Amino acid sequence: MIPAYVPNSAAAVFGGGTPIDFGKAFGDGRRIFGDGKTYRGFFGGVLCGILAGLVEIWAWSSFNLTALPHQTFLSVTLLAAGALLGDLAKSFLKRRLGKERGESWFLADQYDLVIGSFLLILLVDPQWLFENITLPIAVWIVILTPLLHRVVNIIGYYIGVKEVPW
């Protein structure tokens, strides 16, 4: 999951600039995504996720880490892009529900990246998903994701790349 975990933090670091929705509103009068979702953040986050995945591929083959899922360039790209697509989908839903940018949305804030990355892999490379994400790995993902999310967001808040610590 490293290629899916990295993009959200990297997007916060590289973000800014032109919003993905160009400041436009949806039919309900609310912003489509909001100012927090930018092209620079999206592409910077995906690139960092892919780079983290390439390091993982190198480590897997160099150190024979066969107990870990075997990543491919396609899988790391799908995990990284899917994580931020899941975040975009969550932001779209938050705006429809009237939630403001930075407002906490329990569970959705923690699992959007997992759902987005798994859905994208399921659509494009389901064989990789079913061969590599076993039940024990899925359980660990469910347990570790909210813990990692919280720790990383607190760090991001204290170093000034996030406006809120959640």
Rank of each mutant, 00 (worst) to 15 (best):
A67C: 13
Y158R: 14
W140Q: 15
D125H: 12
F106S: 08
A10I: 03
I154S: 10
P146L: 08
F106V: 13
L97G: 09
G98W: 08
A52E: 02
S9F: 13
W128K: 04
L51Q: 03
I57V: 03
L129F: 08
M1L: 12
G17R: 10
T72M: 04
L107K: 10
M1C: 09
L147E: 11
S61A: 12
A83Q: 01
L51M: 08
S117D: 10
F63A: 12
I2P: 00
P126N: 12
A138E: 03
S104P: 01
S9Y: 08
G36D: 06
V142L: 15
N64G: 14
L65T: 08
N132G: 11
R150I: 08
V76G: 05
G53L: 00
A59W: 15
V161D: 02
L79M: 15
L120S: 04
P69L: 09
I115L: 14
F92G: 01
S9L: 12
E103I: 06
I57T: 01
L119T: 06
Y111S: 07
W60S: 09
F26K: 15
R150G: 10
L144S: 10
L54S: 07
V76R: 01
W105C: 11
W128E: 03
S91E: 05
F43A: 06
I141N: 02
A59Y: 15
L93T: 10
F63R: 10
F43R: 12
I155Q: 07
V164D: 07
I155N: 09
S91W: 02
D35Y: 09
G116W: 00
L54F: 05
T66E: 11
G102P: 06
T72A: 07
G156V: 00
R30P: 00
A108S: 09
I115V: 14
H70W: 08
I115F: 14
L122E: 07
V139Y: 10
Q110S: 10
T77V: 06
G45C: 07
L97D: 05
D112G: 04
G16W: 05
S91R: 01
W105G: 07
N64K: 15
W60M: 05
Q127T: 15
V152A: 14
Y157Q: 02
L54Y: 08
W140Y: 15
F14Y: 14
E56V: 11
Y158A: 08
E103F: 06
F14P: 00
N8L: 05
T145Y: 07
G98C: 08
P19S: 10
F92Q: 03
A67E: 14
I20Q: 02
T66P: 00
R150T: 11
Y5D: 11
L148Y: 05
K90H: 02
V164K: 15
